[in-house]
């Protein structure tokens, strides 16, 4: 699926020469995580990466049903400008604390001619919604990856991760096919946090037999560390879910938009 690089931004990263980006071989990628896992940031960054590097269309759907804070209108506009189709509630419903499952999602699953990324809330509402869509998934059509953050209380050790994953599998009636290590402390993320999370994800991988699909982390931190320690693909992240007092970092996807005013 991943073809030649269309934009140059994803090839050159200061400080670490050749990193291998995630390879997506299925048409549907469901990224599941509780709040604080960073699954939305990972989903948005993965969608942007795919949109920049593959010919076939990319769709992202919001299955994080009950979390209106930190839905970012700006992130939606940016993705749409890149040609990504965004399926999310609009208007007043964008900010409603109601479980809204967009009917278009089912249609997008049924006729995927590219890649569909599902951003799934790790709570019962999100995972049940995913489960309800499962009948339209072909069995070999999808990836379901657990996004892990070792700095979140419920996924800070092996037992916590395994319990969380079991709960998601029980309510979605689907099985995970891989893991994403996305350990972070938002703006306080450092080398130690990323490596510690990678080790924990490795332990979860050994315990469950699930592959580590990729490790994701802030681009600016990845640029300062030796990424050779990661024996899996890497997805550098540029934050799009910002707090009102935070300003954008310069990333590959926003080089033209990094002025402070």
């Amino acid at each position: 699926m991943s073809t030649g690089l269309v934009t140059t931004g994803y090839t050159n990263m200061a400080g670490s020469a050749n990193i291998s980006y995630p390879i997506i071989s299925k048409t549907i990628v469901a990224l599941v995580g509780g709040f604080g896992s960073g699954k939305t940031e990972v989903s948005v960054n993965l969608a942007k990466y795919l949109a920049a590097t593959q010919q076939s269309p990319v769709t992202i759907a919001d299955l994080d049903l009950v979390n209106p804070y930190f839905r970012s209108r700006e992130a939606v506009a940016e993705m749409e400008a890149m040609g990504i189709r965004v399926i999310a509630p609009r208007g007043g419903q964008f900010f409603a604390d109601l479980p809204i499952l967009m009917p278009e999602i089912k249609g997008a699953i049924e006729k995927t001619d590219g890649t569909l990324i599902l951003d799934v809330g790790g709570d019962a509402q999100g995972t049940r919604a995913l489960g309800s869509l499962a009948e339209v998934f072909g069995p070999d059509q999808y990836e379901m990856w657990m996004v892990l953050n070792s700095r979140r209380p419920q996924t800070s050790d092996l037992t916590g991760c395994l319990n969380t994953m079991k709960r998601v599998e029980a309510s979605s009636q689907l099985s995970f096919t891989g893991l994403v290590s996305n350990s972070h402390m938002i703006d306080e993320t450092d080398n130690e946090v990323i490596v510690e999370g990678y080790r924990l994800a490795g332990a979860v991988s050994r315990e469950t037999g699930l592959p580590l699909a990729f490790v994701s982390a802030k681009r600016s931190v990845l640029e300062t560390i030796d990424t050779g320690v990661f024996e899996c693909p890497i997805l550098p992240l540029t934050r799009s879910m910002l707090k009102p007092w935070e300003r954008k970092e310069t990333g590959v996807d926003d080089q033209s938009n990094n002025q402070r005013t």
């Binding site: 709040f35 604080g36 953050n149 700095r151 979140r152 209380p153 800070s156 972070h184 402390m185 938002i186 306080e188």
Partner: peptide, 10 residues
């Protein structure tokens, strides 16, 4: 104690 990432409400 290790710093944790928490939602304000939690």
């Amino acid at each position: 104690m290790v710093k944790k990432l928490m939602k304000g409400n939690e």
